[in-house]
Design a protein around this nucleic acid. Structure first.
Lengths: 146, 146
DNA sequence: CAGGATCCCGCTAGATACTG
DNA sequence: CAGTATCTAGCGGGATCCTG
């Protein structure tokens, strides 16, 4: 049994994973979460506005499959289901089945999912905010090369 | 010519792009930047530590091609070059060729790139920080399903 | 409603070889 | 050193059909 202080173990933990290294598991995790559907799903589930029709506020929003499907315009069922499964497996969201007829399935952020939510919203917002600038840069680049 | 105040135009600009919409250009941009190589390149170029060998601090770091290639362990030349080109076209980085023998090429973040840097480092750090938790969640999920 | 199961195309990432 | 060019295998991702 190693004799280390808690501080030493924390320092150790800090360098335990490094996504710059090819075989580091965090490289794979980075790859997983670097995905537009992940960003959009977390952004959607993370919107804490009042649910339309209800008055509840503040709580992270639970959403049904069909609701997500509508929100993420253009997503295929395959990609949506696949991405939701992956997020569930990683513990970022929970999947709740309510045995109504027909069945109701809702998805909700876990604590872990919440911790990633803001970053994902930031990315999405960055894309929306800087779209014009990027478009201008591309145009200038293309004319310069051509 | 529309008669709107600056505030009105700003409010308009705010809803101009929405990545939730399938055809919105920001959806494509989100897809572009949701990429592990983009995250790692921006994180690498964004490290403002002193360059090894020099004493300069504070400034965003310019890096050579080979330097990046070593830092992003396991990246193929193709992916590195391709991603760098894409980032250059979008105006996130600059490419500078110094006509030495052999030629020296350095890459550096632009202002726009800097504005995205922190988000990318956040993602990377999230992956490294929560790796253990995710690994545990996966294990639990797999045993529960099996 | 909320998927599961298949089929299949396209593109992309990787490996390899070559160059100014 | 910093790429370009080419080839190919693999799989990401859409379309389609089916189900509890």
């Amino acid at each position: 049994m190693p004799t280390r202080t808690a501080a030493q173990r924390r320092a150790q933990a800090k360098v335990e994973y490094d996504a710059f290294l090819a075989r580091c598991p965090s490289r794979q995790l980075l790859d997983r979460i670097s995905d537009k559907w992940v960003a959009l799903i977390l952004a959607a589930l993370g919107s804490d506005g009042p649910r339309p029709g209800t008055g509840c506020v503040g709580e992270p929003r639970a959403m049904r499959y069909s609701e997500l499907s509508r929100r993420l315009a253009g997503v295929s069922q395959k990609m949506l289901t696949q991405t939701l499964r992956s997020l569930e497996r990683d513990g970022l969201i929970t999947r709740t089945v309510t045995p109504t007829v027909p069945v109701t399935v809702t998805y909700e952020l876990t604590g872990l999912g919440l911790s990633l939510k803001q970053v994902m919203r930031d990315i999405k917002e960055w894309a929306e905010t800087h779209m014009d600038e990027v478009l201008a840069n591309r145009e200038e680049y293309d004319t310069r090369v051509a």
